[in-house]
Design a protein around this nucleic acid. Structure first.
Lengths: 340, 340
DNA sequence: TAATTTAGTGTAATCGATTACAGCAAAATC
DNA sequence: GATTTTGCTGTAATCGATTACACTAAATTA
């Protein structure tokens, strides 16, 4: 029941050609006012709905975009996706989501199927393990705009929206120094990943700018797990010279560290200040709220979407390569606020 | 460059008809082994990619499904979506996401555009304000399977996957009683929303089953905000007879309550036990981890997807109306664990 | 009045893949 | 040797909307 009504049904009913119906519906100026009104009226009467598939096939535009992320239920990614959706939805685009589970092979597959379904654009945050970029270049080859966000690769012709991780690391470290900390440890993520490398660089620069010589032993890699933070603290506190602050590239590791420090009876922020990264929702809810660097994911999504729109609405031949860098925001909370 | 290769390009190159190419690619048994191999070889050589749009137009199936939720960056919803994606992706489906911002008007629009783009199915959690269901019936009229999850409406012919909110409320309350609590307050959400109503019913039943007469004053509505919990506690503690436990339908309100109670110097769980609902990520990270009812969102998504697959892969004429009810899980943590 | 412009509509091809039907050659049967 | 069957391939219509081009009648101009 409720068979789909096509322009042919309308054309038959009104005894005019389907072309005229199509033109009337598209407000083509060549159509007489009388016919247009008749067609529009009949269309609503018959409950006509445009078949966007047919239109897409003809025009080559689906009004769909794809978003590729490691996991959609990570707070950061879901917020970016929300930003993208809210910016593009008013323009008539739909957002298709894909997960890579941090696996390059999935990334390759996802790009392939997205290109197959003729999405008008792709947004992606690459998997941690991604090195080679030939799968990404495919999008370029097929003339499908691709915009990186957060985790990018340097591919000529592709735009990206990221935060200034260097600055994030710098801000966090500078803040700790301002609190009077001098022996600042750093939990970095996998240094093969650009963002973690940059955060560490920012950390080092801030130390240098303030005449502090970084201790190699104070800089250690963690993953985004609580336990990783607790064991890192254990390692650090084995030595005589203890840190008086921790800047962690992960909020989870920061939380783990805090738990372990409290366990050891160490006062936060009096004895040790702690700063995390990402501004995960839980950081502000803690009894001891954790200072963290916010990556403005919602903003990031919106801006990535805008970059895409610029590209798609600009001339087709011209490819834009835009590199947007957002400034992260430090949310200072009790875990590092000595209230000087 | 890299113009898209069609079956016509292959047919021209091999000097055979496009029909033969199509059949060869689809493993039609009528095609000779020799031709099939030749076509497949040439297809990969020429980097042929099927145009899923054309196929969709012909077959009437897009292999896209839509998911409609209030907000995608809520932990619960993004986890459900992940479940749906991971279940459907292996079957070749893509997931399109839509947000309603808890507004029925958006819901109506979203359903309309999804049906326009010919999705093969729709998953949705209705907005809080939704009463009328005519927009939902449209999907039914167009023969597009629609599966509700979590927040459903009773529409004949539509399936749903929800948790047993009654049981969730019952479990939480029973647990509090087992901890020795006798004066248990309840923070309910908007009682016009089915799930909140059911949780409250569960609460009341547990009290009744244990011979406790519910105090009307102990049951008060909150929204999902921290402040809502703090002010509710203030209200409750104005009276002489204080509660010795709180079962909150919202983790946020539970957290607000805990903060306020601590402010007032009240010991948790010794003097007052607190249980939340939803098992938001932050509940387990707190210094005083919060007991909460888990809604198994990932599971819920997977099962909703399975219900959809059953329906779509079954006979077209037969509509299945399946009502799946998942059992929630109580995660007992320090906020209510008196370690008897 | 004849020639030209203009406004409005129709015809038919197109986007790319699928498939009912037709057709033809080789193999099998009588 | 004639007929039927089998195996494989081609022709053309189809999904629904769009649009270049053609065309007709009315309006305008010469």
């Amino acid at each position: 029941m409720a068979e789909k009504v096509t322009i042919y049904d309308i054309s038959k009913k009104l005894k005019i050609s389907a072309a005229t119906v199509s033109r009337a519906l598209n407000n083509n100026p060549k159509i007489s006012e009388k016919t247009r009104e008749l067609v529009l009226k009949t269309a609503t009467e018959m409950n006509y709905k445009q078949n966007r598939l047919a239109q897409a096939l003809k025009s080559g535009r689906t009004n769909n975009v794809g978003v590729i992320v490691p996991f959609i239920n990570r707070s950061f990614f879901s917020s970016v996706i929300r930003g993208i959706e809210e910016e593009l939805s008013p323009h008539g685009y739909h957002v298709i989501i894909c997960q890579t589970h941090e696996d390059v092979n999935n990334e390759i597959k996802q790009i392939d199927t997205l290109l197959n379904t003729q999405v008008d654009g792709i947004f992606m945050s690459v998997a941690k393990t991604t090195q080679d970029t030939t799968h990404i270049q495919k999008a370029l080859a097929e003339n499908t705009p691709l915009v990186f966000f957060d985790r990018k690769k340097d591919v000529k012709g592709l735009s990206s929206v990221v935060i200034d991780d260097f600055k994030g690391g710098y801000l966090a470290t500078k803040h700790l120094i301002e609190q009077g900390c001098k022996k600042i440890a750093h939990f970095s993520g996998d240094l093969n990943v650009e963002i973690y490398k940059n955060r560490r660089q920012g950390y080092l620069k801030a130390l240098k700018d303030n005449g502090i010589t970084p201790l190699k032993r104070f800089s250690l890699p963690v993953n985004s797990k609580l336990e990783s933070g607790t064991s890192a603290v254990k390692d650090l506190w084995k030595f005589d010279e203890k840190p008086d602050a921790i800047f962690s590239s992960s909020d989870y590791a920061a939380l783990g560290a805090i738990q372990e420090l409290r366990q050891m009876g160490i006062k936060i922020p009096e004895e040790v200040c702690v700063v995390g990264f990402s501004n995960e929702p839980f950081t502000k809810y803690m009894e001891l709220p954790i200072t963290s660097v916010d990556q403005t994911p919602f903003e990031m999504g919106k801006i990535a979407a805008q970059v895409f729109l610029e590209q798609i609405e600009g001339s087709k031949t011209l490819t834009i390569e835009k590199k947007v860098v957002l400034t992260p925001e430090l949310y200072i909370r009790d875990s590092s606020n000595r209230k000087l």
